[in-house]
Design a protein around this nucleic acid. Structure first.
Lengths: 214, 214
DNA sequence: CGAATAGTGTCTCTCAGACACTATTAT
DNA sequence: ATAATAGTGTCTGAGAGACACTATTCG
């Protein structure tokens, strides 16, 4: 690698470099409540979002994958970048930039972790409260118009009632009744032709997400 | 600064750190065309977006300000973060993360720079074409619903015709006729009570942006 | 049968978009 | 008067939301 100089004549290696970390809001729905994965910080007992430092030769998404494999034992996720948090005093350990990420994952895939409803999260370390707020807003925006874009229902077919309960868990303030919900979502779903078995009432049709959805 | 260790037992200083840069899409409207500020790379004659490396003790927004003061002589802007570009091979000089930013600024404030209509931008260095695409999409989204959110018209009062011409320059594909445009924008503007002078036709009312707008 | 859930017909309100008209100025 | 621009009345169609009804199952 040649040591090119930038427009001010300095070489790349002349600049001090910040540490770069990823912090991850892992969101899920459990017990009808939108919840977030938190970890206890052994240093001072505070709670924070999972995260890790970016390693050499590693891309941000890979750091997210590595951190999630470590702390929650899950793989194969597709994190989304939210933004960079870069306040100089955000981390008492030094100059650390954090790239905030969002991941949503079905609760059954998360084993042995602490899940806290987002309405009951207390104070968080660093600027993690701001990251969480951003993540929740983004997730709610994603769920406003499309059926389970993050696949929180897993791969099994589902009824429109299950889907609506999920969407209302993600955003309890969501407007509209069941018929409005159906008319918005059904055109974006694929009817399996199957019916739900063994429940009270008229059996509901079972749907799966269409491949075209994000 | 204490040398805390992270959860894997490594100290902060044990990790190799990437260089962090900001790259900036400076957008403006000139001659009725949405245009971008480009700089010529003296190394190989290619064109790229302006940018700089993040200095120690500096926040990303400050690096953007410094870069714009250097390369375009403008100050007082409020850049918006787009996303981090982190491909390992994006910069032949080494491991460089780039935080892409968007700024929009009235053309009269830009002196002695190269402005190129976004429809006529050729190949760009690094991943700057992707950054530009993101920036244009973001600007168009910003201008879809609100009157001149970036203040491209400057501080002078303006007519609705001037405003509409600006919005159509930002997005030539924008739907709707002048009456639709007026009904969307007028409630978000403040009527100065003044009328335009010395033009053909019925004098137009002059508006300014409301303070509540972003 | 009644309880419970699934699904639909239809009304209302709002709003984007289009069209056509009126209003006010300069030449 | 004519050209040119400003501004408005009104129609249409689409879609969100609500209400009420029908449909199908279990117990």
């Amino acid at each position: 690698m040649k040591n090119f100089r930038d427009s001010s004549g300095k070489a790349l290696s002349d600049y001090p470099r910040p540490s770069v970390a990823v912090d991850i809001a892992v969101l899920t729905v459990v017990g009808g409540a939108l919840s977030v994965l938190l970890v206890d910080d052994p240093r001072d007992g505070s709670r924070r979002l999972p995260g890790t430092f970016l390693h050499e030769g590693e891309v941000l998404a890979d750091a997210v994958h590595r951190s999630l494999a470590d702390k929650a034992g899950v793989a194969g996720l597709e994190p989304v970048q939210l933004r960079v948090f870069d306040s100089l005093d955000r981390d008492s350990r030094g100059w650390v930039l954090s790239v905030a990420h969002l991941v949503a994952v079905p609760a059954p895939l998360l084993g042995g972790v602490t899940l806290v409803p987002v309405t009951e999260v207390g104070p968080l370390a660093f600027d993690h409260a701001a990251i969480l707020e951003l993540a929740v807003a983004r997730l709610r925006a994603d769920y406003a118009e499309h059926p389970d874009p993050w696949g929180l229902l897993g791969d099994r077919p589902f009824t429109l009632l299950e889907l609506e309960r999920l969407h209302r868990a993600v955003d309890p303030e969501r407007p509209g009744r069941k018929d409005t919900f159906r008319r918005l979502m059904e055109p974006q779903l694929v009817d399996t032709g199957e019916l739900e078995q063994g429940t009270v009432g008229k059996p509901a049709r079972l749907f799966i997400r269409s491949r075209g959805d994000s």
